[in-house]
Design a binder for these strands. Sequence first.
DNA 1: CTGTTAGCGCCTTCAC
DNA 2: GTGAAGGCGCTAACAG
Lengths: 351, 351
Amino acid sequence: MAGTQPTRKSTIYDVAKASGASTATVSMVLNGTWARYRIKEETANRILEAAQKLGYAVNMKARGLRLSRSGLAGMVLPHYRNRFFAGLAQTFEDQARVRELCPIVVGTQRDPAVEVNVTETLLSQRVELLFIAGVRNPTPLNELCAAAGVPCINLDLPGDGAPSVLSDHRKGSQTITDVLLDKLLQRGHSPDDLVLLGGVADEYATEMRIAGFKDAFAARGLTPGKAAIDSCGYNAAAANRALASRFDNSGRLPLGLLMNSITAFEGMVQFTATLPPDALKTAVVGCFDWDPFAAYLPFDITMLRQDVQTLIAEAFRLTENFDASDRSRILVPTGFGKMFEEAEQTKEFDR
Amino acid sequence: MAGTQPTRKSTIYDVAKASGASTATVSMVLNGTWARYRIKEETANRILEAAQKLGYAVNMKARGLRLSRSGLAGMVLPHYRNRFFAGLAQTFEDQARVRELCPIVVGTQRDPAVEVNVTETLLSQRVELLFIAGVRNPTPLNELCAAAGVPCINLDLPGDGAPSVLSDHRKGSQTITDVLLDKLLQRGHSPDDLVLLGGVADEYATEMRIAGFKDAFAARGLTPGKAAIDSCGYNAAAANRALASRFDNSGRLPLGLLMNSITAFEGMVQFTATLPPDALKTAVVGCFDWDPFAAYLPFDITMLRQDVQTLIAEAFRLTENFDASDRSRILVPTGFGKMFEEAEQTKEFDR
DNA sequence: CTGTTAGCGCCTTCAC
DNA sequence: GTGAAGGCGCTAACAG
């Protein structure tokens, strides 16, 4: 590989010259469309050989310019730091590749300025579709896409500027709440001992989860008390503080705890780490996200999991025959534990 | 946004027509190079305004074709499923953006066919540089890049076809081994009770970690025993099995355990979850990766952390004035615990 | 069956 | 100060 001059990449002109054919013939052969044009197999082989020898690789920029198809599929998400977003990214990549698209996913750190910036960049690269995941207010991004005529789907958080594909947080919340209530009763405790902790009151996922929480109580002819719902924020520090103040007031931890996000859950773990080891022994806890290590922490824990496979599949489905005026909100069920595990099998040398 | 015909994106021609200027003038103004050409400020403003109104966005495909600069920076990595790779991706994106490049990172699931495929795709999109992280044998990918004249850096695993930026696993291993030995002695146990578990014997990171492990013993005038090093593989199931068989043979867990990867660590956690809760009470354990939840598991655990910031910064440094014949291996120190935490602060609404 | 040609959208040199 | 023209690499008609 040392001898080749690295500056100039070979083009179809080089291949044409080397093989003594014309650029059109080369183009057809290299695209595999040559059978349709009844080009002699011998010519085709000659060209393929020359291309091989020259290390020719198509310039997608030029092809894209000509065809006005970039072959790029874009997705923006906040970060990769939890299993949900990591899974989303992975699944998106896999399914984009199946569709012969080059996946390009970008993390924005939930910074609206970065979100706009990234979207503009992706659009200027002429992505053929854009998925927007976990963006608080996707409308400006939707509008950018609409202006560019690029199909755009909101994932995980709904928006008014495009169709949305969402996990059915309400139903999921009712289900997990129900499980926790059963466990609580089994241990001789009361439904009043269950607390839904974390999240932001005026935000979609939290609203849905609160609704589902109430649904579960209602199905038993009950209503959760005032103190049972504490939307103290998503981040670990907030949940940590909220728990600490409850502890200070009552002298103990709630007997049932439903954490509204893995980050809030992390805050809970941080706080309980400051307590004697068996402070959570009798507690029943649940969480709206799943994490492999969290699942092994030393207390009774139930984790809900979003179905990234279906989420992404639905989003792709919406992009075919995309209807720019579509504002539908598709709901995808969530499930427990390891039900989606297969997708993330590790390879032998993985680490 | 409803009224605009979504099919056609506006071009500089549209902007030129709308503003009554020529395409050249528009181009200069839109590139910010207009001051150099002494274009009237009034004209410039008129053009900017028209562009704004038309929702003009540069077509990077065309610009790239003309300038032979794509504005794309590529990175391939195995997946996003642990904090190291997630951090790498995040940091890469941030630093690429600082350099005015559009980051495009792709996960390959450690599948060599996908790795080659992805590299070819990225190259055909004319990325201006490519980082290759966690690829077992990067040489074929390096050669593809070399043939295309694209700067290419191996991250985290070394290769013969390009410069590499690596964590100093050997030094890190010596340090953490030293810490574990101290703890073991403090508790009245013997250095022989420490086991290095996981990894693949003929693989770079494992080799370095074994060397560091021995260094730590050597510094005390000792040599680890035969059974002290068990490269049973990286994946959780393998570590799980290895521990199970040790347990069957000796009737107890090793008193000191140094896990060679977060996945092997996960296997250990899986196995110990089948034991009585206090089976690990007196154990001393370490791990060559860091995870926020793993850090809160109920036993004495020490985690080593790679410095993704420096890793990426060094890689970028190597790409400027890139020397295609450079085969240097740059070593980056690792550290303990939360030393690189600041980089992943969560926002208020994060989850 | 194969070669010629006209752009895709943009930037830059060179006249005006 | 501004307009016209050429070409980046590729593809798809359209001629031979």
